[in-house]
Nucleic acid binder design. Structure first.
Lengths: 191, 191
DNA sequence: AAAAACAAACCGACCGTTCTGTTTAAGAAA
DNA sequence: TTTCTTAAACAGAACGGTCGGTTTGTTTTT
């Protein structure tokens, strides 16, 4: 890695974590540089457009992680529904154990920023749509019609985002587990 | 209404609208008093604990509106699934027309505040759980088992919240409409 | 007159950003 | 190898502005 790039990467990781946990407005530049052991000089050197440019980088980084992870899990698993079922239960226990989200959610940021900043909105939208595309193609491989697979992918995306929200709000993994139980009903049984 | 109470109500409505659109941290006291044509004196007279107390009142007010509305619609409609289907499509067009949310969503606030403020988290949780209870009881009336109805209500709650998030992020009602189409699949056909 | 409701000036703290100065690394010239 | 040059990579003080909150004063109502 070129010199200085690990500083940049470290800033992106730290900011991404803070942003997705506490929101964009709630996290100050001072907090970011304190948490990442850097300085304002370094931050504004790598991100001349400041906080917003850093958020954009963090969304793309977090999105890439999520998509790579999802792709691997979908390829590894024989049944996509089983894989998504397991993922929901995994996130459920993660929320209970850590009392905070790790890596996954750009949902909070999307909700906070979509109406305020179109560039950020589009970046979040791209992550959501990419995730949906992955899942949709897997269901098409499974013999589902294109229209059904599209609707199902969107619905599953909403279930994940909504489920995480309910679980965080109730400080319990139970909502996510209840949702996981409902997932098989969404898919016509394969013969 | 006692004198001064309409000032208080107006503050709650305005703040609630601003908070759910832009988030808690993003809305300043100055903005709230400007938008509601009041003053800081009036605000801190009615809400001595400031911004946070105002948010709490706004959550309860918005929640009450949502619950009353949902209760009426559920009682009016013969089929709860049909009613929820219609609601999703209604929100879809609302998002497309106004480019902003109206009244409905405490979802954004819940996501932003759940990890930061336990009192706010509990207030949001209470709204979610109350909505779920309404829907659940309607499904039990329809002959569904308690366990099924509970899981279904949670799932529907997640679908609404997640669907609104996806629609706002994509600036389109399509995600919500796709989800609406999937809803009938969640319920075993009634004989 | 007394109490409630409101208005406006004001406060220290913190915000995101800019600025200037220093360090570090790397390549060219000798 | 040594020295000189240059630009990137930082460091951190300082800035104007706004924040949430308080205080003080003025109406209005009872």
């Amino acid at each position: 890695m070129p010199p200085g790039m690990e500083t940049k990467q470290h800033l992106i990781k730290t900011a991404g974590h803070l942003f997705s946990c506490y929101g964009f407005e709630a996290v100050s530049i001072s907090t970011i540089i304190k948490e990442s052991n850097t300085t304002k000089g370094a931050l504004y050197h790598h991100f001349p457009n400041g906080k917003e440019e850093l958020l954009l980088a963090a969304i793309q980084y977090t999105g890439d992680l999520l998509l790579t992870d999802t792709k691997n899990l979908l390829n590894k698993s024989a049944d996509p529904i089983e894989m998504l079922f397991n993922q929901l239960n995994l996130i459920a226990t993660q929320i209970e154990q850590k009392h905070e989200l790790y890596g996954v959610p750009i949902g909070n940021i999307a909700g906070e920023m979509a109406l305020k900043n179109n560039e950020i909105r589009l970046a979040c939208d791209h992550v959501f749509k990419s995730w949906q595309k992955l899942v949709k193609e897997k269901f098409i491989d499974y013999g589902m019609s294109e229209e059904c697979a599209t609707n199902l992918a969107i619905t599953l995306n909403a279930l994940f985002e909504g489920g995480i929200l309910l679980s965080v709000t109730s400080a319990s993994g139970d909502p996510l587990r209840a949702i996981a139980k409902q997932i098989p009903n969404l898919v016509p049984p394969k013969q």
